[in-house]
């Protein structure tokens, strides 16, 4: 694991200060699409300037550097305990260097010890693979957008949402409406249909690992993604809720098995400051390539 810490430090730094290219392209397309001279257009211009400045200065795109969520896929034999120790060390150092804000508070005492290390901080999801390479992906997800996420249990009589795809559509659009601009829109939705209360949210967040241009291989879900995105963009909520054509930049949906008695739809909202990166590691744990 010789070079693992350096590689993770690099990954954290880049995730915090650079928007992935696929998301950046989506933001630029939306900027073009907004009416010239509108508040939406000037808001996008500030967002775009901010993206450029953060990259140039290697400073956090947003001061809320968020929950730290690692996804690690590695071969059988990868030492998970050692990986966690090194990841925690990398998080501590990145916090000292200011790539991460002191952002983790003890829920009972209210104390922020300034390290970003504690129960659930950072979160690391390990997956085994038969391949030789290790891949590490990282998402930094801020609090403002996390607060507007929602989980619905179907049927929902108030929204007239039944246990079918149309019911899913209704509750997902309700979440967009409820969020208005409060999650620092334009947002990206990650959705899981099914699962339980825990796995539903977990899978919904994994959807953020998909590239913006990527199309769902399941046709019904592909259609639902397109439909929700275009319907949401008719609502006129716009960036920051100021009004405009771009309410969502994208929608990603997956389905998971559920119990016969439950039907959850779990929706995670990601703000425009979408921080996600990933690396493939060589056997000596140096970075061989960037994934986004």
């Amino acid at each position: 694991m010789a070079h693992l810490k350096e590689s993770l430090l690099e990954l954290i730094k880049r995730t915090s200060s650079e928007i992935p290219e696929d998301v950046h392209r989506a933001i630029l397309r939306s900027l073009e699409n907004e009416k010239k001279g509108s508040i939406a257009e000037s808001t996008f211009k500030i967002i775009e300037q901010n993206i450029e400045l953060a990259k140039q200065k290697t400073q956090p795109i947003c001061q809320d550097t968020g929950s730290i969520i690692f996804y690690v896929e590695g071969p059988i034999g990868l030492d998970q305990l050692e990986f966690r120790e090194i990841a925690e060390q990398a998080v501590r150092e990145s916090t000292q260097k200011g790539h991460l804000r002191q952002n983790s508070v003890d829920s009972l005492t209210g104390v922020n010890d300034g390290t970003n290390v504690g129960k659930g901080f950072p979160t690391i999801h390990f997956h085994q693979s038969r391949e030789k390479v290790t891949r590490v992906q990282l998402i930094l997800k801020g609090g403002g957008c996390e607060n507007v996420g929602a989980q619905y249990s179907l049927p929902n009589p108030k929204l007239k949402a039944n246990r079918d795809l149309d019911g899913c559509r209704k509750v997902i659009l309700d979440a967009v409406y409820q969020a208005q601009g409060k999650g620092c829109g334009p947002g990206i939705l990650g959705v899981c249909i099914g699962g339980d209360r825990t796995t539903g949210y977990e899978f919904s967040k994994e959807q953020f690992l998909r590239k913006m241009e990527d199309r769902n291989s399941i046709e019904e879900l592909n259609q639902l993604e397109q439909d929700i995105c275009s319907t949401a963009n008719k609502l006129g909520i716009g960036p920051m809720g100021f009004g405009g054509k771009t309410t969502l930049l994208g929608v990603k949906i997956c389905a998971a098995n559920r119990l016969p008695a439950s039907f959850f739809v779990s929706i995670s909202y990601m703000c425009w400051a979408f921080r996600r990166q990933g690396v493939s590691l060589n056997e000596d744990r140096t970075i061989s390539s960037w994934l986004y």
Binding site: I46, I47, L53, Q59, P60, C62, A273
Partner: peptide, 10 residues
């Protein structure tokens, strides 16, 4: 007055 959320650097 509403600022642009997330635009920490600008």
């Amino acid at each position: 007055l509403h600022g642009v959320g997330g635009a920490a650097q600008v």
